[in-house]
């Protein structure tokens, strides 16, 4: 063996450095461990509340009091879920919640598409002013306009109906409508103008160009807006309680999130009338929480790709 060969085979410091920290082209083992370790730890922290919620929701009273039971309940106890679902009136509330979130979302998509196209495609004098107002309407908190709007709905007599959500969405001023208009705006900006011009030369009018070219090309943006709008309307409890349910009138309209908000009082009133098996404890509350999350969670699992790639596709981040 020559001297050069021994050096080659020897475990040198440089080699170790290369192995751990990597070279310019290749990630080293140390780097990889660091990155994966961080990601896994942070990921665990992220889903820790959910795991906690699920594990607690399956515990019966003995498990809750037993300090030796920490994560895994001793038996799969689903009585909590039954009680919580009964108290929340789960299926009926679910249906109402879908309507409350779904119908305004449809109008949000429709109006956002039309208005976004108008902003992206045409030049007119007041465009800059309008865009300024659009941004302003996003920054302005709802609370400022909430009180007069409440009075307006009251005067119109639509308080406590779903119209209080549909009407603003139809006119492009629903929850976070400004974002959706901006999403469509940035999306339609990317549609090459030549395409439109070709359509005009072939004799299409403004509307035909919109329906035949703009809408079919905007499918990714439509999916994004639909998903986000649905989620945001679904998770809105403050405005839903105020407008759709009507704080003072308390109409039939409700969704799972509101039911969860009033869960404690609802549950205790039901418990006193005597049709509840268990008294209120944290397992029942966690069961109610997981029930209110469940529908969107399933939707997320089914449509995960659409959700994750949504922001990529809309081109908010520029090309």
């Amino acid at each position: 063996m020559t001297a050069a060969e021994t050096i080659k085979k020897k475990f040198t410091k440089e080699k170790l450095h290369k192995f751990v920290f990597g070279t310019r082209e290749r990630q080293g083992l140390g780097q990889q461990i660091a990155v994966y370790g961080l990601l896994i730890i942070i990921g665990f922290i992220f889903i820790y509340p959910i795991l906690y919620m699920i594990s607690t929701s399956f515990m019966d009273r003995n498990d809750l009091l037993d300090s030796s039971v920490k994560w895994l309940p001793s038996s799969l106890y689903i009585q909590n879920y039954i009680a919580a679902a009964k108290s929340m009136d789960f299926w009926k509330t679910l249906g109402k919640g879908v309507i409350i979130a779904g119908v305004p979302t449809l109008f949000n998509v429709l109006t956002g598409m039309i208005v976004g196209y108008g902003f992206a495609r045409y030049d007119f004098k007041l465009k800059k002013l309008f865009m300024g107002i659009l941004l302003f309407s996003y920054i302005l908190p709802d609370q400022v306009t909430m009180i007069p709007t409440y009075v307006l709905y009251n005067d119109m007599g639509i308080l406590g109906t779903i119209w209080t959500f549909v009407l603003p969405a139809l006119l492009g001023n629903g929850i976070n409508s400004a974002i959706f208009i901006l999403i469509f705006y940035s999306f339609f900006k990317q549609v090459p103008k030549v395409l439109m011009e070709a359509a005009y030369i072939d004799g299409a009018g403004h509307f035909k160009a919109f329906f035949k070219i703009a809408i079919p090309s905007a499918v990714p943006a439509i999916i994004t807006v639909f998903l986000f709008s649905f989620v945001w309307y679904w998770n809105e409890s403050y405005l839903t309680e105020m407008y759709v349910q009507g704080l003072t009138t308390k109409s039939e309209w409700t969704n799972l999130v509101i039911q969860l908000k009033n869960f404690d009082s609802n549950y205790s009133t039901r418990a006193t009338t005597g049709d509840m098996a268990t008294s209120l404890n944290e397992s029942v509350r966690m069961a109610a929480t997981s029930l209110s999350i469940l529908p969107l969670f399933l939707m997320y699992l089914v449509l995960q790709r659409q959700f994750i790639e949504s922001i990529d596709r809309t081109g908010i981040t520029g090309e």
Binding site: T111, I114, G118, L134, T149, P168, L171, N173
Partner: peptide
């Protein structure tokens, strides 16, 4: 352009 943005303009004025 005004026509396409009309719904939003009405909404902004009203809401």
């Amino acid at each position: 352009g005004y026509f396409f943005t009309l719904p939003w303009v009405i909404g902004v004025i009203a809401f």
